[in-house]
Structure formats: structure tokens, C-alpha cells
């Protein structure tokens, strides 16, 4: 009876969503969106105030927002304050995990699986490659797909590999905590520099450079690398909390 009620409720909500989307002016058919009529066109034109000009890869200099990747331009430039809040949410959740699972004296969780020599050495070799890929993705966040959040997740996954492949391995968690706090503080400091020099919090006061070159977009790559380090160290801390238990 309870399952039937839940099924009816789920179907009703799905039906409600589909009916409210049908023939809705604000909601065009799948694939027939006119981006030019939306606010997103201003982000693509890199101009939210006046009449848009043309943006050309490798030629346009000192646009309103410098990254070649428009998603990065939105996440780390136009809506950077939003991202600061998001990073705070991630910080609070990792703090919550540490409060729930962390204890003073910790040792690795006892598991029946004992890795052999080949697995330990092979994981060490793979660790470097995964870590380098993560750092590459974080550094090139303003030019290519990816950025700080996927790059940070890759850095954390390289730590997870070491944890899974060696049952006595523990990272230096204190270092992660310091890295995390330093990266978070540096993000806020960059925001305050923008406030003091440019007049707005997180204002990009550096030169935006040529669209598409590695050293372009002012503060954006710096912010994204900081986000990458922060996310990577936070998720690594969460992994460590899950794979340890109380003991000597």
C-alpha cells in the first residue's frame, strides 16, 4: 500500500512537470533553443553592458572577461561570488564529515584485502600520471573543458588510488588542512584586492590579455588553480576520514 502510494505520488509529480512544460513560452522544445534571446548571449559576446562586438580567438585583447572557455567565464568571473559560496558549502560538508568520523588517534580501517607488491608499485607509477593530469586540467581551466572542480576531483582520486592500493598508507592530513585553508584564504584575499583596487569584491583588476593564450584572463586561472587545490585537499581529507578508524 505504501509503495503504491509512493508510486502514485512519483508519477503525479512527473506528470505535473511534463504538463507544466508543455506549450510553455518560456520553455522551448528540446534542441530548438534560441540562445541569442537569452542572457547567455551576453556571456558568449563577453559584453553584458553595451552593444556586443565580435570575439575572435587569439586576436581579441582585453575583453570584459578573458577566458576562452565561456563556462569558466561564468563560474569564475561573472558569478565568482556564487562560486565562493559553493566552495564554502564543500568546506562545511568536509568539516561535517571530519566532525562525525574524525577522532584523535587514528589508524587505517582493517580490511581483508592485502595488496601484493606489484599493485603497490604499479599504483605509485599511476599516481604521478593522474596527479599531473589533475593539475593540468586545473591550470588550463580557462582554455579547455574542465577546470578547478574536475581537476581537484582528479587530484583527490590519485590520493584515493594510493589509499586503495596500500592498506597501511596514510597521507599527511595536516598538510592537506593547511593547503585547504591557505587556498580558501587566498581566494578571499583576491576578492579583497578586487574590492580595494577595482571597487567591487572579486573584481578582475589584472590585464585580461589575448583570448586563448595560457597567461590571460587575469585572476581567473589563479582562482581556478586555488579552487582545484582546495577541492582536491578537501576531498582527500574526506577520503582519509572514511578509511580510518579509532585506534593506535
Amino acid at each position: 500500500m505504501k509503495n503504491f502510494l509512493a508510486l502514485a505520488l512519483s508519477l503525479f509529480i512527473g506528470f505535473l512537470i511534463i504538463m507544466s512544460l508543455r506549450n510553455n513560452v518560456a520553455f522551448p522544445e528540446y534542441g530548438t533553443v534560441n540562445v541569442a534571446s537569452r542572457v547567455s548571449q551576453a556571456y558568449l559576446d563577453r559584453d553584458v553592458t553595451e552593444n556586443p562586438g565580435t570575439v575572435i580567438f587569439g586576436e581579441s585583447v582585453n575583453l570584459e572577461s578573458g577566458p576562452a572557455n565561456t563556462v569558466t567565464a561564468i563560474v569564475a568571473d561573472y558569478r565568482s561570488f556564487d562560486t565562493l559560496g559553493e566552495v564554502t558549502v564543500l568546506f562545511v560538508s568536509s568539516l561535517g564529515v571530519a566532525l562525525l568520523l574524525g577522532t584523535k588517534k587514528q589508524k587505517r580501517l582493517e580490511v581483508d584485502f592485502h595488496p601484493n607488491f606489484m599493485l603497490r608499485v604499479g599504483s605509485r607509477a599511476l599516481f604521478g600520471i593522474i596527479l599531473m593530469t589533475g593539475i593540468y586540467v586545473a591550470i588550463h581551466g580557462h582554455l579547455t573543458p574542465g577546470g578547478g572542480f574536475p581537476g581537484g576531483a582528479m587530484i583527490a582520486s590519485s590520493m584515493l588510488l594510493l589509499y586503495l592500493a596500500n592498506d597501511s598508507f596514510r597521507a599527511k592530513i595536516k598538510g592537506f588542512k593547511i593547503l585547504e585553508s591557505a587556498a580558501g584564504s587566498a581566494y578571499i584575499l583576491i576578492g579583497l584586492i578586487g574590492l580595494l583596487v577595482g571597487g567591487y569584491f572579486l573584481q578582475n583588476v589584472l590585464d585580461n590579455g589575448t583570448l586563448g593564450s595560457l597567461f590571460s584572463a587575469g585572476f581567473i586561472p589563479i582562482i581556478y588553480v586555488l579552487i582545484g587545490l582546495k577541492v582536491g585537499s578537501e576531498i582527500s581529507g574526506v577520503i582519509d576520514n572514511f578509511l580510518t578508524e579509532e585506534g593506535v
Partner: peptide, 10 residues
């Protein structure tokens, strides 16, 4: 939505 050398203009 990424400007590259192939997809160069807005």
C-alpha cells in the same frame, strides 16, 4: 561554448 582555433568567433 569554448573558443578554440577551429571555433574562433562568437
Amino acid at each position: 561554448p569554448i573558443f578554440t582555433s577551429q571555433n574562433a568567433t562568437n
